[in-house]
Design a protein around this nucleic acid. Structure first.
Lengths: 222, 222
DNA sequence: TAATGATAAAAAATCGATTGTTTGGGCTAG
DNA sequence: CTAGCCCAAACAATCGATTTTTTATCATTA
């Protein structure tokens, strides 16, 4: 009945890719450590071929470092790299937000409101963090979605993965968290009002505060 | 004697990766076409495993499109995508150039002069194109190298691969080519004079002209 | 005739085993 | 001692064969 939907079959490669990506972002691997391929094989109960394909993709994405003949390493976490990532986020997301505000249509406004609402409703209880993270990523993606540049969106997504790796390592900061949550709502307001200048400024501030939080993860090694 | 240099042994995967990357950029595959994996296996006389690993990396890099259970396709070439790529190059390379000029030291100045000279000396005779392309890529890389952001450089490199795929498809344009070649020298001058504003403007113009050339490849299908 | 379904051929993905490289430990010569 | 060398164990990379999924073909039926 209806949609001739094409079976979205997945492969072992892409499943393990998604899993490893999450686990890398969530810091389930020690930074700087070498990844023992055969250990992963056991741990995730997966064959070598799909595993290696996933590792290759992750390396191309920057979530792993590949060295010929000696496998893969988890990138180390350096303050200087976080600085770089945050600075790039400011530049690229600022650019994207400005364009999104110029180009976004009524449909975008609706989706943005919806995404913001879902995020506000989601709670951050320890067992719900994954869900919250999902809505949070969705919100930021929706915010810049109509910027008109597929490549810009791609780069921003990559930077988010990198940034989140640091952020999730950092200790909780409820004070700042409240401010950051409030800013999500304010961003929506400014976007709907098409106030480019204020929106960019707020986005800058938002990323800067997130950066300050994430920074605690690098400064105080767990 | 001297450097305890580590043997930079390569793997079948990374060799075939480099080869395929070049061939994709050089338009040796029909845009939009599905890549027949077993055909590649024969053509490049390589095993399935290293081949598939290379394809996975290329897809993560954006030089191929991967679809679960139905292999890989060569991305189609659309004017709208070239527009996007060129616009992103203007933004990101402009940003990088400004920072490079601020941060670049004396050593950079030397390398930049050297790179520009090698490029000027290289000729573009049909059988030397590869060499020219190499020096050209080197020059642009050197120009922005000291921008201070590894991620920015990474994104720019990715955009260059994409852009070149269009540019190399386009018919030759000797008139414009002369202007573009001259601009390389002018870019060095402005960089050495640390004239950020003019340098950015020139870089913008340089990319814009290259874009006009590349555009001919999309408009007039070979 | 157009849609449906069965089936064969083709292609992608995965597995298990093999080959090749690196690494670490112990031995020897200086 | 310690630098250099050799060997074995560990690990990464690759191969060849198998399984799974898609695609193409063709008969069947509404």
């Amino acid at each position: 009945m209806g949609i001739p939907k094409r079976q979205v079959s997945s492969t072992a490669s892409s499943r393990i890719y998604d899993t490893l990506r999450q686990d890398l972002i969530n810091g389930r691997f020690t930074a700087g450590e070498k990844v023992a391929i055969s250990a992963l094989k056991e741990r995730y109960e997966i064959g070598l071929s799909p595993l290696r394909e996933a590792l290759n993709r992750l390396a191309a994405h920057g979530l792993l470092i590949q060295e010929n003949q000696r496998g893969f390493r988890v990138p180390s976490m350096e303050r200087s790299e976080l600085d770089d990532i945050a600075e790039m986020r400011r530049e690229l997301e600022g650019m994207a937000l400005e364009r999104a505000i110029r180009l976004g249509d009524a449909e975008w406004e609706s989706e943005l409101l919806a995404a913001a609402h879902r995020l506000k409703r989601a709670d951050m209880a320890p067992d719900k963090v994954e869900e919250w993270e999902h809505f949070h990523a969705c919100f930021h993606r929706t915010l810049v979605a109509p910027c008109g540049s597929a490549w810009l969106l791609r780069f921003i997504a990559q930077l988010h993965d990198q940034f989140d790796r640091y952020r999730r390592m950092a200790p909780e900061a409820p004070e700042v968290r409240r401010v950051l949550d409030a800013q999500h709502g304010e961003l929506v307001e400014l976007a709907l009002e098409r106030d480019i200048k204020s929106a960019r400024a707020l986005m800058d501030d938002h990323i800067q505060r997130s950066y300050q939080v994430a920074l605690q993860g690098v400064l105080s090694p767990a």
